[in-house]
Write a protein that binds this DNA or RNA. Structure first.
Lengths: 206, 206, 206, 206
DNA sequence: CATGAATGAGAATTCATTCAT
DNA sequence: TATGAATGAATTCTCATTCAT
């Protein structure tokens, strides 16, 4: 019954790969890149150290994949919102809300992904991701300016500031261990959305 | 001549302490925490490795002090502006301009202070500093809201976003090796100031 | 059809065994023992890693067998010449010429067999082989001495020196990447033969 | 008393460096490069592993220095004989005798230095040394040919063969653990010298 | 106090060998 | 019997910290 065997073997392989990625992600989430050492990841994934190297050529490559998976997903969420219908203002608000609320659910991970440096190689992925995000917001801001919805502004800088603004709103809660309450989270999210709206649009919310 | 001798010894001690702090700061400025190793700092300060440990109980404590000195100075600059006369709007603009323009002059150092992780212990100082900065901006925003200058808003979140906004405007250029030109720097600074003004005030600049 | 099945299975077994030996030999020829890793040999033989261990108890034993096969063949060539007719002088010249010219055709392999260390166990085989070769030359020298063809000498030492002499003439070219030209090779071969002739016989070639 | 202190400190430093070199040399002598691992060398030198790296940038560099020291000394001995007065024949005989008798005193080391490969970097030193030795003999052979003392021959090949010849006479005893007796050693040495004399000169010793 | 050599716990990576399927 | 993923001991090198002088 080769079919079933192949199936099982592949399942196990995929499983291990996922387990390693999951373990790495978990350790990064808990203690940042610093505590995500090869031995610790192996232990957390319940495999031998050598096994890590069957799936990833180096620790850096493993981290890169962890980052890439998360970043791509986040970028997709924001991009989808940017491509949807609605005014620039509405889309930016949605995008900020989506991003911030998602990140607040795993703040330590968000921090690691957003700012914690590891390795020049790994950092490149992070930077690429941030640049991608900034570009998405930049495009929305330009739309809004063209449509007369927003005042003229340096869209690139505004976009960077916007991304920074909501990143900070993540980093701060991080250090405060609070935000366990859904209500507090909601308040932060909405205030951040409001801030962003004013920042690009100027003029008070009607 | 015990008096003079004591004086000299103390002078030398103070001197060594300063030299070590200066060397550490210089190395962090040039290559971040990563390249500021105890041996390298000792060499740069022209003292023996062991001497470092006579003045600082550990590398972490040395870094903490370096960080603290810089952060305090930055915080003082911003606090002074906050305490000066003028409308909340003007003071926030000045504070943002001051901070961003100062940081752009030593971008590697700014990066290290703002995001580069070192050690949980050291990271605490960084967070404390950011919190301090946020508090200063929070107070200015509250002033503005009370004076009817700004629309009602969650001042704490707005302040955090503001700080994040201008931190990002620093971190990004950092990775792009550009901004060697004074003119580009000025453009970024002014666009950031403008963004901040809109973000807290709403409504376009008159 | 048990008979045919057994036959096929044995054929395949023999086939696998040969394929593994061949792959090991090929890899050693190309990159020496160092690059002939179990995984690489398995890949080159188109079998699974584990399969190697069905045919050979360890990597060392596999290498030993590779070495033994090659060494036996080389020894046979030289022995056949030693047993053939002709004067001791002629036979030694032929043997040296045969050995050197064969080795120069696969220099990396020759190097591995002659000097590259692997494992104490494997090295024993190499030494045994050298000893065998020395014995063959020793016998020819003794023949020549008895026949009055060569001056009296310590045949054992002479034989060892002879073998060393032509091994060196191999090892050196190896490191020089030259000898791509047939003519150069021929010159080295003949000069080596000439050296050997003088060394055992004394007196210039007529 | 700074003078004495400096003196002592330097003595200790030199001592450690020598101890590490000595330990490395000893381990190589006993078990070849293979068994001379950083940890083992440190233990044998009675220092911590890290100490090795204070004196040598890498294991390869340490080995290179071990090799270089020994090779230089050997080369000097042979070169001095080559530069001394006397016929080419006499000088070659002396040089062979000197080299072989020296090497027979530490055969495992001689083997490591002469043939055991380690690392491309390290191997270069070995090759350079062998080439140096061959060149010395080549020059003596050319002298002899010019003087009509030796028959015309390819001096480069003859020199290589000569070096190989006496190297082999070393490698063989190595594997036989014998040659503890002074008399046996002497017999091997003299037979090797005789072989070399005939090889370059042709014609029996008078 | 100052020195800087010595320390040694770690950390990443490799590869022969095993064993469940 | 064949497979090849999993194993984990072994190895090199780093760097904060200590301590004899």
């Amino acid at each position: 019954m080769p079919y079933r065997r192949t199936e099982r073997v592949e399942a196990r392989l995929a499983d291990n790969r996922e387990r390693i990625l999951g373990a790495a992600r978990r350790l990064i989430t808990e203690g940042g890149f610093r505590e995500a050492q090869v031995g610790a990841i192996a232990a957390a994934a319940d495999v031998a150290t050598g096994t890590i190297y069957r799936y990833f050529p180096s620790k850096a490559e493993l981290f890169i994949e962890v980052l890439r998976v998360i970043c791509e997903r986040e970028l997709n969420v924001v991009s989808a919102i940017a491509a949807s219908g609605g005014s620039a203002s509405e889309r930016i608000a949605s995008a900020v809300r989506a991003f911030v609320s998602r990140a607040l659910r795993a703040p330590r991970l968000a921090y690691a992904i957003i700012v914690e440096p590891v390795d020049p190689e790994v950092d490149l992925v992070r930077l690429e991701y941030r640049r991608g995000q900034v570009r998405v917001f930049e495009a929305m801001i330009e739309d809004g300016v063209r449509a007369g919805e927003f005042p003229p502004q340096n869209a690139a800088v505004s976009a960077a500031c916007l991304v920074g603004a909501f990143l900070e709103s993540l980093v701060r809660p991080l250090s405060e261990h609070s935000f366990a309450l859904e209500e507090e989270r909601r308040e932060v999210i909405e205030a951040t959305v409001e801030f962003s709206r004013r920042a690009v649009k100027g003029g008070p919310t009607p």
